[in-house]
Design a protein around this nucleic acid. Structure first.
Length: 261
DNA sequence: AATGTGTGCAACCGCAAATAA
DNA sequence: ATTATTTGCGGTTGCACACAT
């Protein structure tokens, strides 16, 4: 299927955004909200393609962005999440409020990679550098966790042991297709991490207003009280595939943000 | 002061998935 | 079911700046 260019390239600006362009974009989105990036530039009077507008807004103009240096806690969180998720920057960013995938990706490539290498850790495999060569080839860090799409692993779902019944999981237990037995052994310092991934149909399939596709569900208030469990979990809801992915991050020493319900 | 090198970050590109027609 | 279009993601590039020589 042929693809047409996302915009009339001959009539669009490229490169750095000017203050005026930023103001126009911000004003337009504040007034009309996000969405329909394709038509936004014209409507906002911008000579940019929609993609460029989206990127500028998400990575730079959004009011909830936390700017400034990453904290040591954020560093550790990124490293742990990268170990679990691989280069799924958007998913990692989903656990770092105020940070964007682009920002994290840049930070990883410019700081953390070097930091890990200096520690003697392979930034891709998270194994000790000396050992990394010995264990090649590496399996992927995780089965293809959907990021922006579930197509890569939805046949795995069909073959998984995750029955619909198992979807009613108040805790993310084992028996999911990426079982501990199938997973590569963890380095000693990560032995306490629960890598279980539970993939299941949505817990509330009849939800009247499902969240928009490919968005991480809004985190409930920090102190959701009695639901506190040992697991730190993140759940992703993919209405178009009628399933939910629950990533359990046990014993990371991380602040619990969301519950897997 | 001029030049070279390294670093950080914003933005672009191509692709794949999702969605609409 | 097929095709066209839009959206989102990850990889990569290019520019601006700081610092060293």
């Amino acid at each position: 299927m042929g693809r047409s260019p996302c915009c009339e390239k001959a009539h669009t600006n490229k490169g750095a955004w000017t203050k005026e362009e930023d103001q126009r974009l911000t004003a337009y989105i504040k007034q009309h909200g996000e969405g329909c990036w394709r038509s936004l530039p014209k409507a906002a009077g911008l000579l940019r393609c929609g993609k460029s507008c989206r990127l500028r807004w998400i990575n730079y103009l959004r009011p909830d962005l936390k700017r400034g240096n990453f904290t040591e806690d954020e560093d550790q969180l990124i490293i742990k999440l990268h170990e679990l998720l691989g280069n799924k920057w958007s998913m990692i960013a989903g656990r770092l409020p105020g940070r964007t995938d682009n920002e994290i990706k840049n930070y990883w490539n410019t700081h953390i990679k070097r930091k890990l290498i200096a520690r003697g850790v392979d930034p891709q495999t998270h194994h000790p550098l000396s050992a990394a060569a010995a264990v090649q080839p590496q399996p992927p860090p995780l089965p293809a966790v959907p990021s922006g799409g579930v197509g890569h692993n939805h046949h795995n779902l069909a073959g998984s042991s995750c029955s619909p019944d198992a979807s009613v999981h108040s805790s993310c237990s084992d028996d999911d297709y990426y079982s501990a037995a199938a997973a590569p052994p963890l380095p000693p310092d990560l032995a306490g991490i629960d890598l279980n991934l539970s993939i299941s149909p949505p817990c509330h399939p009849s939800s009247p207003s499902p969240p928009p596709p490919r968005t991480q569900e809004a985190a409930p208030p920090e102190a959701s009280g009695a639901s506190a469990t040992a697991a730190t979990t993140t759940s992703y809801h993919y209405p178009e595939r009628e399933m939910r992915i629950c990533l359990c991050l046990n014993h990371l020493g991380l602040q619990r943000r969301e519950d897997c319900n």
